[in-house]
Design a protein around this nucleic acid. Structure first.
Lengths: 330, 330
DNA sequence: CTGTTAGCGCCTTCAG
DNA sequence: CTGAAGGCGCTAACAG
C-alpha cells in the first residue's frame, strides 16, 4: 500500500481512504490511486492486516471434529451447513471449515483458526475440540450438545422426540430394538441389549436412547432385554450389516427405532422387523414410507450462525414432530 | 501476549517460543508461561496477527459465486467440496467458503477474503468474481472452466464426453433432444431448438452442448431442429416441467441427453422419451438404470485443492467414461 | 536459553 | 480533503 502511495504521489492514508471511504477522497486522487494500484498489481488492503487492525475477521468457524472426514457424505450435516452458509452469505461473513478430524492437532487447529465465533457440531461431553473452542473466549454455539456453560445450545428435545416416535414404532411390538449412533468417540460397532444411556458420551445419542427407553418402559418392556445395534457411521449399508447381527442374536425383533433415516433404511433392507422408524424425515423417508422425526437441520444451521453472530436465539427444543407413515402401520 | 509476558516475568519472545517452539524454552519458563496464560485467559497467539507476520493464512478459499445459494443442494457440488475438504484437513489448511451469491458485492468479498489461494467453481467467461480472484495475484484454480491465463484448470473433456454419451443416447433415435444447464448468469428457463453452443457463457455447458451437437451431426441429424430445454437449476422437479414444455413443442422426441442425472431423472418422470442419458453417474443413475457420464467430482475437488497448494496438477481431461445402462437400451 | 529490535500492512486519532 | 504518528499482536533475526 505504501508503494502505491509513493507511486501515486500521495500518502498511504489517501490510498486507505480510497478503498474504505471513497467519498472522502477527491475524484482526482481516487482515480490516480486506483490507476497506479492497477499498474502495480495492488488488489486492495490485505485482509490479515485488516483483521488485525479491526480485531475481527468477519468469519465464522465451523468445527465438525472427527466428523469432518465424512460430514459431506452425511445429508443431514450438509443440510446443516447449508443453513450456516445461507446466513453467512447474507451477512457477508466467511464460513471457515476448521481442518479437524485427523488427530491430536485438532485442538490447536481450532484455537488458531482466524474466526470471530465457533459453531460446533454435535459431539461428546469430553471432546477436546470443544474445550479448545471455549478456551479462546470467542462465542461458541453448539449444535445438539453437549450443553456447556458459556456456550449457546441449539437443538431439539431429543429425549422427548425419541419417546414420542418410540411410542409409535414400539406400539403393538413384542420385541423392540434400537439402531443407534456411536456411544463414544471410539465409534465401535456392536450389538448389546439394554445399553445404559448414562454411559453414552454423545448427549444427542444419550437423549435419544433415553427417550426410546422411556417409550419401552411406558409399554411395560424391560429395557435390559432391548437389543441396541450401534453403528459407526450414518450409513445404510453399515446399518444393514449391524441389523443382520442384531437379528441373528434376537430373531424375534419386530420393531426398530433408528436414530436416522439412513439407519432405518438399513434396517428395512436387512429384511427383518415389521415396524421401523427413522429420524430427520429426509427425502429417503418419504420415498420409503418411513415414520420419522421431522426436524429442520437447515434451519438449525441458520439459527446457529445467527446466534454466533450475536442474535438472540430462538428456542428450538420443540421444533420437531413425528411424521407417521406406513413403516409403523400407517 | 505482552500481558502474559509481563505477568509471568519474561519477555514476549519467551511466550511466543512457548507456543511455537516449546523445545527451545526451559521447562520452568514454559510452565510459568502456560500457567499465567491460563490464569489470564490467554488462549495462544492471535491468528490474524500471525497471518500478517507470516504472510500466509493457511486457508484455501472456495468461490461458488451465485451458485453458493444452492450449492449445498447440489449433490455434485457437495462431492466436490468433500474432496477439497479432505485435502485441507490432511494438510491442516482451513477451507473458507467465500460469502458470495447475493449481488454486486461479490467481487469485493472475494478480494477481501483472507486466503492463500482460490478455488473457483465452474462459471462463465465474464464472471466478475473470477476476475476478482485473479486480480489478487493469489493462485487461482478453476474447476470446469473458463480457462484463463494465470489460472490452473481442472476438469474433464466435456465436449468429448458429451459426444460419446450423445452417440449412445441418440443412436437409433429419430428425434433427439437435450436438457441443458443455464446458458448464462441470468439463468433463464426456456426451450428452443438448435441452441448455438457459441452463445453459451458457461464453458462447461458450452462444451457439452457442442459435444451433443457433434453426436447429432455424426448421426446426420440437423442440429437446428434439435430441441434444447434449458433449466435454471440442477433439480429434477424443474427438469420435469421443462421436459413437459419440450414435449409439448416436439411430441415426437424419443431421446434426451441431459447434462446431469438430476435433469435426466426429470426427463424420465415427465414420461416422454424412450432413451435418456444423464451425467455424473450419481447413486440416482444406478438406481434408475440411467446411462451416464461417470466422473469423480470428489477427486477433482481434491485435485483442485492440491493444485491450489502448489502441487503439480494431474490432467483430468480423460478422467471420465460412459456407463451404459437400460435407459439407452441396455 | 532468553531478551532486544524492528516491522508485517493497515487504519483510528488528531492536525493541518 | 489530506497527512503524520502510533499501535493492533506477533515473530525473524540477531544479540547476549
Amino acid at each position: 500500500m505504501s508503494d502505491v502511495a509513493r507511486a501515486a504521489g500521495v500518502s498511504p492514508m489517501t490510498v486507505s481512504y480510497t478503498y474504505n471511504r471513497p467519498e472522502r477522497v477527491s475524484a482526482d486522487s481516487r482515480d490516480k490511486v486506483l490507476r497506479t494500484a492497477a499498474e502495480l498489481g495492488y488488489a486492495g488492503p490485505d485482509p490479515s492486516a485488516r483483521s488485525l487492525r479491526y480485531g475481527a475477521t468477519r468469519t465464522l468457524g465451523v468445527v465438525l471434529g472427527e466428523h469432518l472426514t465424512y460430514a459431506f457424505d452425511d445429508p443431514q450435516a450438509v443440510r446443516f451447513l447449508a443453513g450456516v452458509a445461507e446466513v453467512c452469505a447474507e451477512r457477508g461473513y466467511g464460513l471457515l471449515i476448521v481442518p479437524t478430524g485427523t488427530g491430536d492437532e485438532d485442538p490447536e487447529r481450532v484455537v488458531s483458526a482466524a474466526v470471530d465465533a465457533y459453531i460446533v457440531w454435535t459431539t461428546t461431553d469430553d471432546d477436546p475440540v470443544l474445550a479448545a473452542a471455549c478456551s479462546t473466549r470467542r462465542p461458541v454455539v453448539v449444535h445438539g450438545g453437549p450443553e456447556r456453560e458459556g456456550t449457546t445450545l441449539v437443538g431439539i428435545d431429543n429425549r422427548g422426540a425419541a419417546r414420542a416416535v418410540g411410542a409409535e414404532v414400539f406400539a403393538t411390538a413384542r420385541r423392540p430394538a434400537v439402531l443407534s449412533f456411536p456411544v463414544d468417540r471410539r465409534r465401535d460397532t456392536f450389538v448389546r441389549p439394554g445399553v445404559d444411556p448414562d454411559t453414552v458420551a454423545y448427549p444427542v445419542t444419550r437423549d435419544r436412547l433415553a427417550g426410546y427407553r422411556d417409550a419401552a418402559l411406558d409399554l411395560g418392556v424391560d429395557w435390559s432385554e432391548v437389543p441396541v445395534g450401534v453403528c459407526r457411521t450414518n450409513d445404510a449399508a453399515e446399518a444393514r450389516a449391524v441389523m443382520g447381527r442384531l437379528l441373528a442374536a434376537a430373531p424375534d425383533v419386530d420393531a426398530v427405532a433408528a436414530m436416522s433415516d439412513q439407519l432405518a433404511l438399513g434396517a428395512l433392507r436387512a429384511g427383518g422387523p415389521v415396524r421401523v422408524s427413522g429420524w430427520d424425515d429426509a427425502d429417503v423417508a418419504r420415498e420409503h414410507g418411513l415414520t420419522s422425526v421431522a426436524q429442520s437441520l437447515r434451519e438449525q444451521g441458520a439459527a446457529c450462525a445467527a446466534a454466533a453472530l450475536g442474535d438472540p436465539v430462538a428456542d428450538h427444543r420443540d421444533a420437531w414432530r413425528v411424521v407417521r407413515r406406513a413403516s409403523t402401520g400407517g
